[in-house]
């Protein structure tokens, strides 16, 4: 107990991806999610909008009264839960594909500018960061909902607004550190201009950290999209998102527990494997970056 060194170093792998087997499992789930997100409409066994009032609120197959006709049961309008779940993957995937690159690029550019030029540039950009921190993103979502009809682009705007600052802070901090390094000073000495140094020398040294942070934010996007759609300020209520499925199942939660439980488990599973993958990537790319802010 008193020993200073970590007795578990090197064999601590219960919950982290260390062995190839766990990595393969993680990647398989991730791949499944991506495939379902892209080809969901071809894979889904039924039309997710097809109503069947006679066969409504059927239990999933593992429950006592369930059957394999609808493996994950049906909702209060008789729609097939499994098919809706598969369709729902698309919105999560779309949100990730749109939000993460935008937030990463905007945050990184502002962060590198703030770090490199310092002074008023830095003060101005950091004031924007402060502004973001002082305004819960969910409020922006509600405002946008009042201005425009609900749509995926509202979700994207809100989440980019919520996430860019994390990237800006990380990149600014690392740029500040790099500025004093010999290779940057050397580049400056031979007369390279600011833009060239930032693009050719600073940015390549930051790519690892940026990629890791982006990966670690993917789960945030999945959870936040579901949360906004659940509150009714995300995508339109007649489209299919895991958050909307949960909100629609709310009314019948006690009689039809699977309607809330199943999409929630999908969200957890995706977030979990993405985070595990992010942890693995972090250890793989840069072991020193263990404490990067998530």
């Amino acid at each position: 107990m008193q020993s200073v060194e970590d007795p578990f170093a090197g064999r601590r792998r219960n919950w982290r991806v260390r062995s190839p087997k766990t990595l393969v499992a993680t990647l398989s789930v991730l791949l499944l999610f991506i495939v379902l997100g892209i080809f969901g409409s071809q894979i889904a066994p039924e039309d997710p909008f097809k109503l069947d009032l006679v066969g409504r609120l059927q239990a999933p197959f593992f429950a006592a009264e369930g059957s394999l006709d609808h493996p994950l049961g049906t909702d209060d309008l008789g729609r097939d839960t499994l098919s809706r779940l598969i369709y729902g993957a698309r919105i999560s995937l779309l949100a990730i594909v749109m939000v993460i690159p935008l937030a990463t690029v905007i945050g990184s550019i502002l962060g590198i500018l703030a770090g490199w030029f310092g002074g008023w540039t830095s003060r101005g950009i950091m004031a924007l960061v402060d502004l973001q921190l002082a305004m819960p993103a969910i409020l922006i979502a509600v405002f946008l909902r009042a201005i425009w009809e609900p749509s995926l682009s509202n979700v994207v705007i809100v989440l980019v607004f919520a996430l860019w600052a994390t990237f800006a802070r990380l990149v600014r901090g690392e740029t500040l550190g790099l500025k004093e390094r010999e290779f940057i000073i050397a580049a400056r000495t031979i007369g390279a201009n600011d833009l060239r140094i930032m693009v050719r020398h600073v940015l390549p040294s930051l790519v690892n950290s940026i990629v890791i942070l982006a990966t670690l934010n993917v789960a945030t996007v999945v959870i936040a999209e579901a949360g906004l759609s659940f509150l009714g300020v995300g995508i339109a209520q007649d489209s299919i998102s895991w958050g909307i499925m949960i909100s629609q199942g709310r009314g019948v939660i006690v009689t039809a527990w699977w309607l809330v439980t199943v999409p929630g488990i999908a969200i957890i599973l995706v977030s979990l494997v993405v985070n595990l993958f992010g942890d693995w990537l972090r250890d793989f790319l840069d072991p020193q970056l263990r404490n990067v802010q998530r």
Binding site: A219, I223, A226, G227, F230, L231, I246, R250, I253, V260, T261, G264, I267, I268, L269, S271, L272, N275, R294
Partner: peptide, 11 residues
């Protein structure tokens, strides 16, 4: 980090 809090509330 993976469980949405509204879902936890419903559970």
């Amino acid at each position: 980090q993976a469980v949405p809090n509204f879902w936890l509330g419903l559970m």
